[in-house]
Computed example of a mutant assay.
Amino acid sequence: MTNSPSFDLIVYGATGFTGRLICEHLNATYGVNRDINWAMAGRSRSKLEQVRNELGLDTTVALLVADTNDKASLNKLVSMTKVLISAVGPYQNYGSDVIKACVENGTDYVDLCGEPAWMHQMIGEYNTAAKSTGARIVFSCGFDSIPFDMGTYFLQQIAQEKLGGPVCRIKCRIRNMSGMASGGTVASFKATMAAAEKSPELIDVLVNPFALTEGFTGPEQPPGDKKIFEDDINSWSGPFIMATINTKNIHRSNFLLGHQYGEDFVYDEMVLLGSEEKPKKPGEMGFDMSLKPGEGPSKEQREAGFYDIVFYGTASDGQTIQVSVKGDIDPGYGSTSKMIAEAAICLLENTETSGGCLTSAPAMGASLIERLQNQAGLIFTVE
Rank of each mutant, 00 (worst) to 15 (best):
L206A: 03
W236P: 13
D232V: 03
G215W: 00
F210A: 00
F210D: 07
I228P: 10
G238D: 07
D232Y: 09
S237P: 09
E214R: 00
S237G: 12
D232A: 09
P239V: 07
P223Y: 04
P223N: 04
G224K: 03
K226D: 13
F240L: 09
F216D: 06
N234E: 04
E230G: 13
W236Q: 12
F229N: 14
W236G: 14
D225F: 12
I233D: 14
I228M: 15
T217H: 11
P223T: 00
V205N: 06
S237K: 13
A211Y: 12
E220D: 04
F240R: 07
L206V: 07
V207T: 07
I233L: 15
A211S: 11
T217L: 05
I228V: 15
G238E: 10
E220L: 04
V205M: 04
D231Q: 13
F210I: 05
S235Q: 11
G224F: 07
P222L: 00
P222R: 00
P209F: 00
K226N: 14
G218Q: 04
F210C: 02
I233F: 12
N208I: 01
S235D: 11
F210P: 09
Q221F: 01
I228T: 14
T217W: 01
E220C: 05
D232R: 00
I228E: 15
D225N: 12
E214T: 01
E214W: 01
K227I: 14
F216H: 08
F210E: 02
K227Q: 13
